[in-house]
Amino acid sequence: MAFELPELGYAYDALEPNIDARTMEIHHSKHHNGYTNKLNAAIEGTDLEGKSIEDILTNLDMTNAGVRNNGGGFYNHSLFWTVMKPEDRGYLSGELKDAIEAEFGSKEAFIDAFSKAAATQFGSGWAWLCVHKGGKVEVCSTPNQDNPLMPGVACGGTPILGLDVWEHAYYLNYQNRRPDYIDAFFKVINWNEVERRYAEAK
């Protein structure tokens, strides 16, 4: 079965003023939709057809640019929309809070590490919070549409929080002020979803 563009679960303007409606509309309906269609075209008629996106990416031939770029783009954005929410976001707590404090010392130190990974990713890419089996967490960044599920990519583990730092994710509202966009992202994180992903992945 072909992959389908997932619904956002909220209106394009729901994250304003932190992320503007026009950016969300273009990002979801054009960029993510484009990755979805190109992924389907790349796997059509191959042995990848019918497999889950996680299975495709964890066993990826990294020289297969069509699947690497578009499969990554499909997966990354599918995660991205769910880790943001306009309301009822919860807050960092429970086992995830304990794991973050064990690794980084404090929530504030984690925010600094994640923000640095996002701000210093050269060109286009993503910042990630990943979890390894057993519950240890790690922050890293990846270029383009690569992600920690892919073979040989920095971090490894399962991504549970991701921030898109391609310019199309923020340029209409923030222009070249990527740090302002990163700060805004922390105001809309759906911690309930991040904690759910942590519990599932560890």
Rank of each mutant, 00 (worst) to 15 (best):
106 S>I: 04
90 G>N: 11
87 E>Q: 06
128 W>G: 06
122 F>V: 10
74 F>Y: 15
140 C>Y: 07
131 V>D: 00
139 V>E: 05
89 R>I: 04
147 N>T: 02
115 S>Y: 00
117 A>F: 07
82 T>A: 02
73 G>K: 04
154 A>G: 04
81 W>D: 09
126 W>C: 04
125 G>L: 11
91 Y>A: 13
152 G>C: 07
144 N>T: 09
153 V>I: 15
118 A>P: 11
137 V>N: 00
141 S>T: 08
121 Q>M: 11
110 F>C: 00
156 G>N: 12
118 A>D: 06
133 K>I: 08
113 A>E: 13
110 F>K: 01
134 G>H: 08
153 V>A: 12
79 L>E: 08
123 G>D: 09
144 N>G: 07
76 N>E: 07
144 N>P: 01
93 S>R: 13
153 V>C: 06
153 V>Y: 03
122 F>A: 15
96 L>Y: 05
82 T>D: 11
128 W>I: 04
121 Q>T: 11
96 L>T: 01
104 F>I: 04
133 K>S: 14
107 K>Q: 14
119 A>N: 15
130 C>S: 12
122 F>C: 07
96 L>K: 08
103 E>R: 14
109 A>H: 03
82 T>H: 10
115 S>E: 04
128 W>L: 04
114 F>K: 09
112 D>F: 08
115 S>N: 03
94 G>N: 01
76 N>I: 03
138 E>H: 14
144 N>Q: 12
127 A>Q: 11
101 E>I: 02
134 G>Y: 07
77 H>E: 15
128 W>A: 00
81 W>V: 14
74 F>E: 07
119 A>D: 13
73 G>P: 07
84 M>P: 00
84 M>V: 12
147 N>E: 08
81 W>R: 14
111 I>F: 09
141 S>M: 03
152 G>E: 09
104 F>A: 05
111 I>Q: 14
95 E>N: 12
138 E>I: 01
107 K>V: 12
146 D>L: 12
85 K>I: 00
77 H>I: 09
98 D>Y: 01
125 G>Q: 11
129 L>M: 03
124 S>L: 05
